[in-house]
C-alpha cells in the first residue's frame, strides 16, 4: 500500500515536474538580451505576443473555449494602462495591475454568454464583444483619441529605477519578467485540481459534471483569468510603445493570436511562446519583400497549415517532446 501510495505521488508529481528543457528555454529567452542586442524591440513584441497567446491557451488549450475576439481584452488592457499613464499615474506596475483588473472584470461580465453556448455561439459572442469594444474605442474619441490613437502616454521608470529607452533594453527585460511571472502562475494553475477540472470539462462535459465538476463556474473562472492575462499583454504593449492605436482591438489581432497558438500547439503552455517566435519571424521575412499583402500570405499560411502543415509541424514538436515526459502535448479540443 505504501508503495502504491508512493507511485501515485511520483506519478502525479511527474506531470508537473520542471524539465531541463524548460530551464534551457527560459535561459535562452534571457540570453537573447545579450545575443541579439539590435533586435530587442522585435523581441519585446515577441514576448508580448507570447503572453497574449498564453492567455488564449488557457481558455482554448485547457478549457476548449474557441474565441474569435480575444483582442477585446488585449485592447481593453492597452487602453486601461495607456489612459492611466496619460492621466498621471505612469508607474508601469500599477498600470499593469490596473489593466489586468479592468480586463478581468470585462471577462467576468462576458463569461455568462461564453460558457453557456456551443462553439458557434461562442464564436459569435466573442467576435461580437470585440467588435463592440472596437466601435466604442472608435466613437469615444474624446477619451481614446479614436482613429488617431492614444497619445501623450508617459511611463515612469520600472520600480523607479529602470527608464524605458529607445533600443528596447528596459522594455524587453520588463516584458520578459512579466511574462515569466505570469507563466509561472499559469503553470501552477494548470497543474492544480482546478486546472485538471478544466481539462475534464474540455474532454467531456457530461462526464465532468457527473464527476462533481460544475462546468459553468469553472469556465467563467478561467475566462476571467485569461482576460486578465490578455489585459496584461495589452498593458505591456501600451507601456513599452507609449502609444495605443485602434489596431489593438482589430479583428486581425484575434485571428493572429489563434494562428500563433495553433502553430505552436495548444494545451502545454509553450505552444504560444514557440508560435510567437515563428509568427514574428514569418511576419518579418514576408514584410521585407511584400509589405502590403501580408494578409494574403497569412491567409495562405492558415489554409495550408490546417490542410497539411499541422501534422508536419506538430509531428516534429511531438517527437521532440516524446523525450520529455513532463511536457506532454495535449490533443486539441
Amino acid at each position: 500500500m505504501t508503495t502504491l501510495h508512493d507511485r501515485v505521488r511520483s506519478s502525479l508529481y511527474g506531470a508537473r515536474r520542471w524539465h531541463p528543457v524548460e530551464f534551457i528555454f527560459w535561459a535562452l529567452a534571457l540570453a537573447s538580451f545579450w545575443l541579439f542586442p539590435r533586435h530587442l524591440l522585435l523581441m519585446n513584441e515577441i514576448a508580448i505576443l507570447a503572453l497574449f497567446a498564453l492567455s488564449l491557451d488557457l481558455i482554448l488549450g485547457y478549457a476548449g473555449i474557441v474565441s474569435l475576439g480575444h483582442a477585446a481584452f488585449l485592447g481593453l488592457g492597452a487602453y486601461a494602462a495607456g489612459l492611466l499613464a496619460k492621466h498621471g499615474i505612469g508607474d508601469p506596475l500599477i498600470g499593469l495591475l490596473f489593466a489586468m483588473i479592468v480586463s478581468a472584470v470585462a471577462g467576468l461580465l462576458a463569461s455568462p454568454l461564453v460558457v453557456k453556448g456551443n462553439d458557434l455561439t461562442r464564436l459569435m459572442v466573442t467576435l461580437g464583444v470585440a467588435l463592440i469594444l472596437h466601435e466604442v474605442a472608435n466613437s469615444w474619441a474624446s477619451l481614446t483619441g479614436g482613429a488617431d490613437g492614444l497619445q501623450g502616454i508617459t511611463i515612469t521608470p520600472v520600480l523607479g529605477l529602470f527608464q524605458f529607452d529607445l533600443f528596447g533594453k528596459t522594455a524587453y527585460l520588463y516584458s520578459l519578467s512579466v511574462v515569466f511571472v505570469l507563466f509561472l502562475v499559469a503553470r501552477r494553475l494548470v497543474h492544480s485540481p482546478f486546472g485538471l477540472s478544466l481539462r475534464a470539462i474540455r474532454d467531456n462535459v457530461l462526464r465532468a459534471s457527473a464527476s462533481g465538476v460544475p462546468p459553468s463556474r469553472r469556465l467563467a473562472a478561467i475566462y476571467t483569468i485569461a482576460a486578465a492575462y490578455a489585459g496584461a499583454a495589452g498593458a505591456l504593449m501600451a507601456q513599452t510603445t507609449q502609444f495605443v492605436s485602434l489596431d489593438v482591438l482589430d479583428f486581425h489581432r484575434s485571428a493572429d493570436v489563434m494562428l500563433v497558438l495553433i502553430i505552436g500547439g495548444p494545451g502545454y503552455l509553450y505552444g504560444g511562446m514557440i508560435g510567437a517566435v515563428v509568427f514574428k519571424f514569418l511576419q518579418d521575412t514576408i514584410a521585407a519583400f511584400t509589405p502590403q499583402y501580408w494578409m494574403f500570405w497569412i491567409g495562405l499560411f492558415l489554409v495550408l497549415f490546417v490542410l497539411k502543415g499541422r501534422s508536419l509541424v506538430h509531428g516534429g514538436i511531438a517527437s521532440l517532446l516524446k523525450h520529455f515526459p513532463g511536457l506532454r502535448m495535449r490533443k486539441t479540443p
Binding site: M258, I262, F296
Partner: peptide, 24 residues
Amino acid sequence: GKTHLDQVMFTIGIVFMAVAGADY
C-alpha cells in the same frame, strides 16, 4: 471531419486571402 477550431482557422485563411486578393 475536423474540429470547429480547424474549420475556423481554415475559413479565416480563405477570408484573408480573398480580402487581400480583392485589394490587389
